[in-house]
Nucleic acid binder design. Structure first.
Lengths: 216, 216
DNA sequence: CAGACTAACCTACACCTGCAAGAAAACCGA
DNA sequence: TCGGTTTTCTTGCAGGTGTAGGTTAGTCTG
């Protein structure tokens, strides 16, 4: 299931070296750790490159040797977490005895994962956050949905016109999940993850035609 | 720069209030026009306050007299367009002869409106865009959905638990529309608006349980 | 271990940011 | 038209940004 996704999955500006060089790893992990610390403290828009570099005990120019700006670091620094997040989305299990149970379980894990790093995700997804990171997450969710659908396409009717590579419903669902997540985070996570899963599941099942008892 | 208007101290917004003063109108419209011009030329992230002020033939400090940064101007400058955009979303017409026809028509208008200012919306919603504007649009769509649903709540089966004030499905649908729109714009609007409407409508109708052609 | 490599650092620069006085100009109502 | 009010402009400042060139020092390889 897992794409490899180490800390440096996203290629920064120059050569994408999944390097063995200790210096690179040291600097990048220090920067990532510093950013994640800072983003739990204040809004992303109030965090400067100098702030991150200082906190990481790294020179400012070393930052620019790896990332173009704070948003790019954020995108890279959260890749592992985002991958884990997306993995917890429900995939239609082809041979499960109780797919509904499975799905709500996965959804609960999804919201729990959000809640676990609520400060981080709220800062990244909110109005003061990073359009870049949000877009990145949405693309990844859409891709995951697309993959999952292709894997089980045999029993799903083609909704999109046959000539269309543009997967509208994946974009639809990915945006929807981000919308729900962002809204929930901004309200301070008023409902527990399990309840959010219970609230979200009917919507997803309506979209994907899993028997939930309401649709013909 | 003044926080309060002398006449209507109750009026909350300084920048958004259409003041009678000709100078204010002149400056604000000049700034808005300049930003919209620039955002059609290059990415929002490459547009500085100085750029906008220069293009608007206005001093930089006059900009700060009205807006905190470029994102705030973008939010204000697009309000009219965004309102028009949201108005073109389908609302369940209670007494329509053919609600499906109505809905796809509204959706077509929605996508056509996006396409008309494709450069603008692509720049605002994309990865280099403004998280602030995106969040703003999402909230407005969610509010519109919420309002529309309340207006027609009598004949809609309640899917969400009754005790929940937190309108998950509105956030879900709002995010979904933004996801579809963003994706479509970033791909360069490959399908015409009518086709996008045809692709999106089944998803919305699955969510809201409108049944095609069965309601005379 | 020694040498080649290259990441990290330093300095410097031109530009942008957000803000704050205060002077100059435009506005509105009487 | 006049006078008070409000807006705009000017000037200045302490930061932050993104880039470039060159130096120092850590790392991998032979």
């Amino acid at each position: 299931m897992s794409i490899k996704g180490k800390l440096t999955d996203v290629a920064p500006k120059d050569s994408n070296t999944p390097t063995g060089d200790r210096r690179v790893r040291r600097t990048q992990t220090a920067l990532a750790r510093a950013l994640i610390q800072l983003v739990e403290e204040r809004d992303l828009s109030r965090i400067s490159v100098s702030d991150v570099a200082d906190r990481a005990e790294v020179s400012r120019s070393a930052f620019y040797d790896h990332y173009r700006d704070v948003h790019e670091l954020a995108e890279a620094a959260c890749t592992a977490m985002i991958d884990a997040l997306i993995e917890s989305l429900p995939v239609p299990a082809p041979d499960s005895a109780d797919p509904v149970q499975d799905a709500t379980h996965s959804l609960t894990a999804f919201f729990a994962s959000l809640a676990e790093h609520a400060g981080l995700y709220r800062s990244l997804l909110g109005p003061q956050g990073s359009a870049r990171v949000t877009d990145h997450i949405r693309r990844r969710i859409a891709a995951a949905i697309h993959r999952a659908r292709e894997a089980t396409a045999d029993h799903l009717p083609e909704r999109a016109p046959s000539g269309s590579p543009h997967d509208v419903s994946a974009a639809f669902t990915a945006g929807a999940m981000i919308g729900v997540a962002t809204d929930w985070l901004q309200r301070g996570c008023p409902h527990p993850p399990a309840e959010m899963a219970a609230l979200t599941w009917p919507l997803l099942s309506a979209l994907y035609g899993v028997e939930a008892g309401t649709r013909p």
